[in-house]
C-alpha cells in the first residue's frame, strides 16, 4: 500500500472524540521547545502512526492543536511530540507534568513516501521545528537501512541554541552512508559550524539527483526556495515532498480551516508532492 494513501479507519470511537493520554515525560529540547512522551489508552489505535502524520492534542478547557508526531513509528507504547511554546495551548502542553492527562485524536493525514523511496537515496531538509515531523522518517530509514541508499539530513535553524536533538543529530552523522549538516542564520562566538541558509548546504551534499527523493519540512518560504533549488539541481518535482502547515481544526476535512486551493491540508496533506502544491505556494491569499 502506498504510504501516501489515507490511513486505514481503525479508530473505534467517534472521530471527534479524543482518547485520554497520560504524560509520561517532558524533556526540554531548547529554551522554548519541549518533547512530550504520552501514553495512549492500552490497545488504542491512536498510537499506530506512519512517519509524517499528526495528532490533535487537546488540553482540557484550553484548546486543541495539530501536533506532528516526532517519535519512533515502531514504538507503540507511547507517542512523542516536540512542541514549541508559542501561545496559550502550546504553553499549557509543554508545562504538563508526568501523570497529567491530554486528549489525543488521530493519527491524521498523509505520510512521507518511504515505500516509494525504497532503493533510492533520501535527502531530508528541515528548518527550525520542521525536524520534528521528519524524525520518524529518519528513524524508519535507520531501522530499515538496507532498503535505502544514502541518507542526507540538512538542518537549518535560527541560532545554535534553537537546534533540536543536537546529540542525536551528531550521532546520525557518524553512521555509514549518512551525511548530516546543520547551519544557522546567526552563529554565536562559540559556533564553529555553518552559517547561512539551508539551501546553501546543497552544494556540500554528495548524492545523485536522478536517484534521490527529497523530503522537506520547515517554514513555507524555506521550503519554497529549497524546492526550486532542488529542481534546478536535477531532482524532479515529483520526487520532492513537502509537509505543509495550516491552521487545522477538525483534522478530517469537515471545517475547511486548513484549505489550500482545492486541498485540505489535514486530510490531503500534510505531506504533498511538490508538483501538487507548488501552484499554491506563492499565492498571497492562501
Amino acid at each position: 500500500m502506498s504510504l501516501l494513501a489515507a490511513p486505514p479507519a481503525t479508530v473505534k470511537r467517534p472521530i471527534m472524540q479524543p482518547a485520554v493520554g497520560r504524560v509520561l515525560q517532558v524533556v526540554k529540547e531548547t529554551h522554548d521547545t519541549f518533547t512530550l512522551n504520552i501514553e495512549p489508552p492500552p490497545g488504542d489505535p491512536v498510537a499506530r502512526f506512519r512517519p509524517g502524520q499528526f495528532s490533535m492534542l487537546y488540553v482540557h478547557g484550553v484548546g486543541e492543536l495539530p501536533i506532528s508526531i516526532s517519535g519512533d513509528p515502531e514504538c507503540h507504547d507511547y507517542l512523542t511530540y516536540t512542541i514549541r511554546s508559542v501561545g496559550q495551548v502550546t504553553y499549557q502542553l509543554v508545562t504538563r507534568q508526568p501523570g497529567e492527562c491530554i486528549g489525543l485524536r488521530g493519527p491524521f493525514g498523509t505520510a512521507w513516501p518511504l515505500t516509494e523511496a525504497r532503493g533510492k537515496s533520501l535527502l531530508i531538509v528541515a528548518g527550525g521545528i520542521g525536524l520534528a515531523p521528519l524524525r520518524p522518517a529518519i528513524y524508519h530509514v535507520l531501522r530499515h537501512r538496507g532498503d535505502y541508499n544514502r541518507l542526507v539530513v540538512l538542518y537549518g535553524g535560527r541560532s545554535p541554541r534553537d537546534l533540536l536533538y543536537r546529540k542525536e543529530f551528531a550521532a546520525w552523522g557518524m553512521l555509514p552512508d549518512t551525511q548530516t549538516l546543520a547551519t544557522v542564520d546567526y552563529g554565536g562566538v562559540s559556533w564553529r559550524g555553518h552559517v547561512g541558509v539551508v539551501t546553501a548546504m546543497f552544494r556540500h551534499v554528495r548524492m545523485q539527483p536522478d536517484e534521490t527523493v527529497a523530503m522537506l519540512c520547515g517554514p513555507e518560504i524555506m521550503m519554497r526556495y529549497a524546492g526550486r533549488e532542488l529542481e534546478s539541481r536535477g531532482i524532479p518535482a515529483s520526487r520532492i515532498f513537502l509537509s505543509m502547515e495550516r491552521n487545522m481544526k477538525c483534522a478530517v476535512g469537515f471545517c475547511g480551516h486548513c484549505q489550500m486551493g482545492p486541498y485540505f491540508v489535514c486530510k490531503d496533506g500534510p505531506v504533498f508532492p511538490f508538483t501538487q502544491i507548488k501552484p499554491y505556494l506563492d499565492l498571497y491569499e492562501l
Binding site: G87, G196, E245, R246
Partner: peptide, 21 residues
Amino acid sequence: ATRLQMLDVYARKSGKGESGQ
C-alpha cells in the same frame, strides 16, 4: 541567501497562529 536570512523565517510566531510544526 542574505535576503532569505533577513526574513528570519525561523522566528517565533505569535500565539494566534500556533500549530504543531
